[in-house]
């Protein structure tokens, strides 16, 4: 695994089928649903509809790997990540962490579980409380869980700041004095404070400059190696996902349409949506770039309030047939480790 992190491009191909089998499942998500109700009424509010942000998502995350979750804006990637962490309570489905069902946990049990799984947020400007010093921000998880004495916490904070490449003397400063990349490191130090083994990274680099993105990604990789972390990496930057992730799941309108190991997915996309998505990635080779054919999808993403019947991609799919408008396709393993939900692929 650690090799794979250092050189993410080497593990594709034949060896990868075995890769998934002998790995321990850390997180198992089964048929996860999250609907947000739309209410109406002045005094007595009735539920009139629901936004089906996540609509039956299943996947596994293996210990030590990085699973990428990609898709366009509003497809439910972030909601999936937050629902896994129980920041939103799921409407239906199960989330098992290390074999334990966590979607039903409450109170103290849930609080204990939070020590295991943490989150890195997208917007480094909104994710740090502007009224708290860096020291208090990073120490907060320790204070909340009542870990250590004041002195021990201070030492831990200094060690954490150093771990993410920040000067430990920054503890008395406030977030507004830092750049986006530095703030993201502070957020990272906070999420590492409790020694979690699983981290949901919700587009942690989308808000950063390209030069800073590479720094943060390298930091994430180094920490994964040092601390044996498992990541669920939510992103829309496809080339960064290819670089960082072992496996990639593609989401469209609240559902997963394709899951495969990253090289497999990038070289052999099977779902028409994945093909369209990947055709948008520019290739840094002029001759290849010239021949690159962009698949332009027609229309817009349908509303998640009222998704289409059958396959939810049928309104935009270039290869749809009658069955796509009746029956919802199942996510099927068509190649070893490569799962696709499409009637036309089977």
């Amino acid at each position: 695994m650690s090799e794979a992190v250092r050189e993410p491009h080497t593990y594709a191909g034949g060896a990868s089928a075995a890769y998934a089998k002998d790995k321990e499942v850390l997180l198992e998500v089964t048929d996860l649903k999250k609907y947000f109700p739309i209410k109406s009424g002045i005094v007595i509010q009735r539920e009139v509809a629901a936004v089906k942000a996540v609509d039956g998502v299943s996947f596994k995350v293996y210990k030590g790997e990085t699973l990428g979750l990609v898709g366009e804006s509003g497809c439910g990637k972030s909601t999936t990540g937050r629902t896994i962490l129980q920041l939103y309570r799921p409407t239906a489905g199960s989330v098992k962490y290390a074999g334990q069902e966590i979607s039903t946990l409450k109170g103290e049990a849930l609080r204990r579980m939070r020590r295991e799984m943490q989150m890195i947020f997208q917007d480094p400007y909104a994710s740090l409380n502007p009224r708290m010093s860096v020291g208090r921000i990073v120490a907060e998880p320790l204070v909340v869980h009542n870990i250590g004495t004041k002195k021990e916490r201070e030492e831990r904070v200094a060690a954490l700041l150093e771990m993410v490449g920040l000067n430990p003397y920054f503890v008395r400063r406030y977030p507004h004095e830092f750049s986006g990349g530095q703030r993201q490191r502070i957020g990272l130090a906070r999420s590492l404070a409790l020694n979690p083994s699983f981290i949901v990274a919700d587009e942690p680099i989308s808000a950063l400059d390209v030069s800073i993105q590479a720094q943060v990604v390298n930091l994430l990789q180094r920490l994964q190696e040092e601390l044996g972390l498992t990541y669920l990496f939510i992103a829309h930057d496809l080339s960064m996902v290819r670089h960082l992730c072992n496996r990639v799941a593609v989401m469209y309108l609240g559902k997963i349409v394709e899951v495969a190991e990253s090289e497999e997915l990038y070289t052999n996309p099977l779902h028409p949506y994945t093909q369209a998505l990947l055709s948008a990635v520019p290739v840094p080779d002029p001759s290849v770039e010239e021949r690159r054919q962009r698949i332009i999808l027609k229309g817009d993403v349908p509303s998640p309030i009222n998704p289409p019947k059958g396959c939810n991609f049928n309104t935009r799919c270039p290869v749809s047939v009658d069955v796509c408008f009746d029956t919802e396709p199942e996510l099927v393993e068509v190649l070893p480790g490569h799962w696709v939900a499409c009637h036309r692929v089977i």
């Binding site: 937050r82 989150m119 740090l128 009224r131 869980h145």
Partner: peptide, 24 residues
């Protein structure tokens, strides 16, 4: 997101209100 981050580390409602919302 900083309120969500506090929730993610397991902060209580009381703590979120007093430490994160009120000073802001």
């Amino acid at each position: 997101e900083f309120v969500e981050a506090a929730r993610a580390v397991g902060a209580s409602d009381r703590r979120i209100i007093l430490v994160h919302l009120m000073p802001n």
